[in-house]
Design a protein around this nucleic acid. Structure first.
Lengths: 196, 196, 196, 196
DNA sequence: AATGAATGAGCTTTCATTCAT
DNA sequence: GATGAATGAAAGCTCATTCAT
């Protein structure tokens, strides 16, 4: 499946990088031809590597989500589950800010992943759920919060950050409010990362 | 401006209704032709009533936003500003749930309303800002929250509700978390509406 | 065929006048709805009186051409056939200047009047031919000029005047050149009208 | 800018040829789709080569006008300026006969070239003006004729030739009349080309 | 008779995708 | 394996013409 020729592998990687940027800016509405142009390859080359626009989009997402899942897995055993959870939440929002394609993809995890071949969004959601559960066990997050709504808040703040072009400060204050709402009693705040 | 003939008025209204639904489902990317098809009229009829796709979209939005602004104005003098603020926040989210076009419009209010003839989104944001200020004066909302981030949370939760097809219960719990984060101390919660 | 009701007759006349102006400005590409709007009647009223855009155009032309034919007939018996011919030539050009529809119609006389119900352009051409013949008999126009090319020059100068928005002076000088070319020997110029 | 592949170059050329013919028949009002159909390519292929209808039209015109300007430049130094001028005049009319698009473009040179990127029509007019001036200096064309009206006659005869589908003989006789009008005294005629 | 709403065909243009080189 | 030319299915919009009031 992976191309064997060196130039092909190089093209494949460059296309993916460019796609990330292009779809990050324009969302999935951006055109495949722009990806090809910026990648410096012909349009047919893009379609050779990713037989469909959707496939290209998914490749972009898979790359991101895999990395994010890995980070979540690393954090799953953290000694400070509260810090781990809030830190990861913030990280996801920052990561998504300005990446329309990413946050559009977050959405799909919610239910209509439909016929998608892969299930990365759900994987991420699950990994995120682990961090949430740990944080709740540790008393850093209120026990009555369920993954559904916490994930919804993650998606929501990410979307808002991306679509409103929120700068870091506003993003931080918005997150601060949500985190206060998620926190458990007054002692909990201590475990949250205060700075970006 | 309003057509005088009964059938035309009927069509106009039906087109608007259908547009609301179609754009609600597919966002502003949905096609005008689908509106025409579902409304059971020719494509030219849609363009007769709304000479531009944008005009049709705006008609949908104006209808909503005007009503919402009116409600905000009514609440502005409420004896319980905290209840007014939180209630309106919830109302906006519920209203936007499943209406992609509406939440896209919320977004525009954030900055790029550009050359739009009308400024309903900004008007709504302003009206919402009044309720926020009142609620802060009344001590129901923390004083350090600024309109920017509170509006961002409104947009975010609305987007999440619409895109994830959150059901009422999840929506309510997500809102509960945000509201807790917005609340001021422990006495404040009393003033929030507990039920949908 | 003529409407019996007074208002109908009034409308019919007003539509024709407006059509003359509108088609004069925009040529036959102008829209029928603009005619209706400027005439202050509904679009259907235009189509009631003139069942087709083409019919409306023809009505405009017939009106003009009939008048012009009448004038040509009057001049046919003139004591100064040279003056009559050149004067009428100039008159046609001045009349057509700025009336795109008219000069477009001149064209049809040349051959492709096809399925047109009426033959006014040909009538005018014939009437013009009479003046030409008389002027040639009188020695005011060179004998070797045939109607075909003289009519072509008439059409050409008219088209140029209309499309290039020639002002009166340039028009007069262009006509002067053509008239010199049509004249017969050096004495002939005397019989031409020197001023507009 | 020119396509490198043989088939593409072929298509590009065929499209241009067909466009010449289609716009020649129907003027700029003719549809791009007809061009595609007659060229035997998909509509998108036309738009690939000429990204806009206007661009296609301009390509047609540029092709013609550049050639014509070149010819005018070649003639500018002619030893027989009268022959050069009259010959070029005739050539332009012959070239335009049956090519509505060309003569529409002649017209634009007169005034409303507007924001057009290229100014071929004006260039041609200027080149034509040079020939006129030379011919006047040489005494082959009357000194009192200005470019404005001479150009108007050029446009006019061209329009007439195109719209009336004048055959060569009529065209020649019409030109003969105009040329007599432009000539200077009786000796001048010698320098005119008598044959097509 | 007059109105203006409704219509559908047609136009220009874009884009994901396929095909020939 | 890479290229870019070709494609056709939309989409937004206009306009002559017909229909219901």
């Amino acid at each position: 499946m992976e191309p064997t020729r060196a130039d092909a592998r190089g093209n494949r990687a460059r296309i993916l990088e460019v796609a990330e940027e292009v779809f990050g800016r324009g969302g999935s509405a951006a055109s495949t031809e722009e990806v090809a142009r910026l990648a410096g390859v012909g349009i047919a080359t893009v379609f050779r590597h990713y037989p469909t626009k959707r496939a290209l989009l998914e490749a972009v997402l898979v790359k991101h989500f895999d990395r994010l899942c890995g980070q979540a897995d690393d954090l799953a055993g953290s000694a400070d589950p509260g810090r781990a959870f809030f830190g990861f939440f913030r990280h996801l929002v920052d990561d998504a800010a300005g990446k329309l394609a990413i946050i559009e993809a977050f959405t799909d995890a919610g239910g209509d992943a439909r016929d998608k071949a892969d299930h990365r969004p759900l994987d991420l959601r699950a990994a995120f759920g682990v961090l949430l559960a740990r944080a709740q066990e540790a008393g850093a997050v209120r026990a009555d919060a369920r993954l559904e709504e916490v994930y919804a808040l993650l998606v929501g703040v990410s979307r808002a950050a991306a679509h409103l072009h929120l700068d870091e400060q506003v993003r931080a204050r918005a997150l601060g409010i949500v985190f206060d709402g998620l926190a458990c009693g007054e002692g909990a705040e201590k475990s949250r990362p205060e700075d970006a």
